[in-house]
Simulated assay, not measured.
Amino acid sequence: MDEIPRKIALGAIGVWRHDRTEPELAVALEGLGYGTLWLGNVTDPDLTEAERLLDATDRLVVATGIVNIWSLPADRVARAYRRIAERHADRFLLGIGAGHPEATKEFVRPYEALNAYLDVLDAGGVPAARRALAALGPRVLRLAGDRTAAAHPYLVTPEHTRRARELLGAGPLLAPEQKVILEADPARARAIGDATLGLYLGLTNYVGNLRRLGFDDTDFADGGSDRLFDALIVHGDTGRVAEGVRAHLDAGADHVALQVLHAAGTDPLPAYRALAGALQPAGGQPGPGARLRAP
């Protein structure tokens, strides 16, 4: 009988990246104490970017956030997982998800499609303990708890994290993404973050989830209300960002994946470096659910 893999250790704080990540940045993030690097724009079913980043680092967990089930074949992804797991079994988390209907013409019965994809991963030797599922609504959150190691909600508030933890119970990992802008001036922060937020306000899965959290049409008009912006994008100095991250951990998250938004053409590493001290848990290396130092 195959040994069941131990629970993967994501650390309390990670980094979520949409852009291609070079190994040098991964090494730097590992050195700053971040526990996991999430790859947000996975288009290669052979997962070569994840493998390259794992090869370049020693402790950093690399997670896909996400592999889209409609565009990357499950059998090929399973083969890629097995290849990578031969050398990095405890540092690679395969995150999958259904994306959103506006981007995928095949988007029909996504719950059934997710189950079918997970069936192929089962048959292909990808253990549930090394899988995560993008999840917003209750049904898919339950599926994440039943068939994977972790739920990975995107574009959510600490209130969503609280509800997700209540639904999941104590066992499954809960790893929400959180957008942050290291900018104390609200107007400059909005100038940086408006375009990113606007990308999601025409997507029914995100808007539907935000409605469940109490937002309405006035919040979705004209690029998003100030109330919506402030709820979804933590902005301010390092202390304010640490408060926003702590809100998710206090609500039941095991791990928070930070997506730093920054002005076009600028390097995000200085922001991650500045945040690292404020986000470092008391007592050393990040750990799931650890208490952060007061800023």
Rank of each mutant, 00 (worst) to 15 (best):
M1C: 15
D2V: 12
E3A: 12
I4F: 00
R6W: 03
R17I: 09
D19W: 02
T21Y: 03
E22T: 05
L32P: 00
G33A: 13
N41A: 13
T43F: 08
T43Y: 14
E49Y: 00
E49C: 03
E51D: 09
R52K: 05
L53I: 05
A56P: 00
V62S: 05
A63N: 07
I66A: 09
I69C: 02
P73E: 10
D75K: 10
E86K: 13
R87M: 05
R91T: 01
R91W: 07
G95H: 03
E106L: 10
P110D: 14
A113Q: 05
A113M: 04
L136I: 07
R147L: 09
T148I: 04
A150E: 05
Y154F: 15
H160L: 08
A164E: 03
A164T: 04
G169P: 00
E177L: 06
Q178R: 10
Q178N: 07
Q178H: 06
A184H: 06
D185F: 12
A187L: 08
A189N: 11
L199E: 15
Y200F: 14
L201F: 13
G202Q: 15
T204Q: 11
Y206Q: 08
L210F: 06
R211F: 07
R212C: 12
D216S: 15
T218S: 15
G224W: 00
V234G: 14
D237H: 04
T238I: 08
R240F: 04
V241F: 01
A247G: 04
H248Q: 14
H248L: 10
A251Y: 03
D254L: 00
V256A: 05
A257G: 14
Q259Y: 01
V260L: 15
A263V: 10
A264T: 02
T266M: 13
A274H: 04
G283P: 02
L292E: 05
